[in-house]
Design a protein around this nucleic acid. Sequence first.
DNA 1: GTCTATACTACGATAGAC
DNA 2: GTCTATCGTAGTATAGAC
Lengths: 208, 208
Amino acid sequence: MIRKHLLETAIHQFGERGFDGASTRSIAATADTAMSSITYHFGGKEGLYLACADYIVEEVRDRITPLLSTVEVEDSDRSGATEAVCFLLRGFAGIMMSEETAPWARFVSNELQQPTEAFERIATGAIDLIMAKVVELVGIARPDLDEIHRRSVAITIWGQAIFLRLGRASIERLLEANTMNAAAAELMIDRVVANARCILTQSPECRQ
Amino acid sequence: MIRKHLLETAIHQFGERGFDGASTRSIAATADTAMSSITYHFGGKEGLYLACADYIVEEVRDRITPLLSTVEVEDSDRSGATEAVCFLLRGFAGIMMSEETAPWARFVSNELQQPTEAFERIATGAIDLIMAKVVELVGIARPDLDEIHRRSVAITIWGQAIFLRLGRASIERLLEANTMNAAAAELMIDRVVANARCILTQSPECRQ
DNA sequence: GTCTATACTACGATAGAC
DNA sequence: GTCTATCGTAGTATAGAC
């Protein structure tokens, strides 16, 4: 399947070198095909780029959907909702730390900094899906908050997990881990989950 | 000062379009000079890029140093340390949210995802400076934690503020704020600080 | 120091053979 | 569908005038 091979190669190279930095020549060569295959399958470089976004959305959904479908919480079950958030967060953080997702993450990071049409597709296709569930659960865990504050809590909690990927270089530096080894990854995931639990089961002095 | 003008233009364009996407032609033209000025002042594109990193370090230090110098905490003053972290965090988050720092942030973000020599310079020149202080304060606020856990707490707290910049596109989306207005920015900064206070004054059930 | 002019390379797109 | 060959454009670097 040359189409898929092109997509995966392209995500790698777009992620590592940016849209301009990655060349169709190099992508085609790495995928062991001719440059004009890109024209044939995707219409051109731009089309290939957008197809990469769609491909990432599919892959993320494949991993996230089963996770999301396992949580079911009663409307008044505060501690159940807290545990559900922690469970989802641990799964999501694990995905963020896995090497498998590194190329997608770099691709998405580029779009986060300089959003194009590709970001719109990733946001509506994957990010919204996750955040809707998280906001809902935060709402159950923290009924004292109104909608906008629930959203701010949800995004800061999830932001920590995303930062595990986006800020990896500086995390590795601070932990003096040359590469993110399993122990360091576990340490950081545990920390992010503990922080989330802390925020959701707010002690009186930090209630807001 | 054409050198400075070139640097600021270059940071903008490198940040927005990446190293490959930004062309020396365009940078020189925007800075109202000839392309060969870049060769004269910086030796070439690569040299210009590294000089941008050094320039960012200087600018960040100018803003961070006065902030860091205002905090002085006794070794046993737990609540003092917590408040100091919150104070620094608020200042730092404010810097992260300001439009002035947006070009630098994009530049640094590119380096975080794909570190080069430029990241090494930014890390040693600016990031290490900040994180050393934060880790020290976290150590006072949470004497129950050993060094590695202090670091993990410090990086997750600071990561929230950095994510305000790196994840801005998705934050705006979730808050349904087309652009990050003052109210949304204040909401997010308050939230990040509240989370930090929550984490540092840990309630028993989330102690770890 | 700053400019113009030019050499050389690499890019994306496309036409056309198979 | 996939390839080769080629065209026009845009990039960096550099030489040399002033």
